[in-house]
Amino acid sequence: MDGFERRTSIKKEKILNISAALFQKEGIKKVSISRIAKEANVSQVTIYNYFESKEKLLYEALIYFVNQTWEEYLEIAQRSIPFEEKMKLFIFDKGQVASHLHEEFYNYMMDLYKTEGNYIEQLYQEKALPAMMQLFNQGREEGFIDSNISDTALFVFLQMFSDYVQKDEMGDQILPLTEELMKLFFYGIAGKGESKKPD
């Protein structure tokens, strides 16, 4: 990559970073290209040269957000800490982030997730699911997950959850319940996990 390509790449990432942050916080309709250009300290022409339209920028910003979120989850999953500590981080930190997504951005993401062969589903199947199964193996080894629960049962449970959230009418119901659903997912209805926030 030469100097021009590197500068272009850095500029595009800055635009995506700012766009994703604005869309998450303020929604889609309220955020204009001119606002993004001002925040990113670039011209509107530059944004259109890179992304052609607001719709394409929105899509790329969503992919950027999904990739960043995945990297953050993976970093936690790979830490040398007990399984239960990882679960607390997922629930209290990442769960709160998800629950504060603007409804427009969340619905856009869920609409994409419902399309066949979409990027989010590919990421889930190819990277997230194998990483989660490794994490569950750690939970078994530490006695947090019942060793009698097979990988097949866990996979079916995860797939049921994935299929459910893709239903048309589920988006509005799930978003405000994100933290509760994560607790239910990891601790079950018995609620054996500690509920206090980690230090």
Results as ranks from 00 to 15, higher is better:
Q125W: 04
Q125N: 15
K88V: 03
T46M: 14
E116I: 02
M110G: 01
L74Y: 11
L135H: 10
L89R: 06
E104W: 03
I120V: 15
L89I: 09
R140A: 04
Q122L: 10
Q78S: 04
S53F: 04
M109P: 00
S147W: 04
F136V: 07
Y106Q: 02
F136S: 10
L57N: 07
I47W: 04
S53C: 01
D93P: 05
S53I: 06
L89V: 10
E71P: 00
D111W: 05
G143M: 07
E60G: 05
K127Y: 04
A98L: 11
T46R: 03
E72W: 03
E60K: 13
F105I: 01
M87L: 11
P130R: 02
A131E: 14
Q138D: 12
D111Y: 06
E116W: 11
S80D: 14
E75A: 15
F92Q: 07
V97N: 15
H102N: 13
A131W: 08
Y106G: 01
Q138N: 03
L135F: 13
Y48F: 10
G139V: 08
L89G: 03
Y113D: 01
P82E: 06
G95P: 04
K94T: 05
E52M: 00
I91D: 06
L58D: 00
F90V: 12
H102T: 02
T46K: 13
E142W: 12
Q78M: 13
F51L: 05
Q138T: 04
L89M: 09
S80H: 14
I145V: 13
Q138F: 02
I81L: 07
D111I: 06
N137K: 14
K88G: 03
L135N: 04
E126I: 04
G139Q: 06
E75L: 08
F65C: 02
M87C: 15
E84V: 15
W70D: 12
N137Y: 07
D93Q: 12
M110D: 04
Q134I: 10
F65M: 06
S53R: 02
E60M: 10
F65Q: 05
Q122T: 15
M87I: 15
F83N: 02
F144A: 12
K88Q: 08
V66I: 15
E103C: 06
A98G: 07
E72P: 08
G143W: 03
E75S: 07
I63C: 07
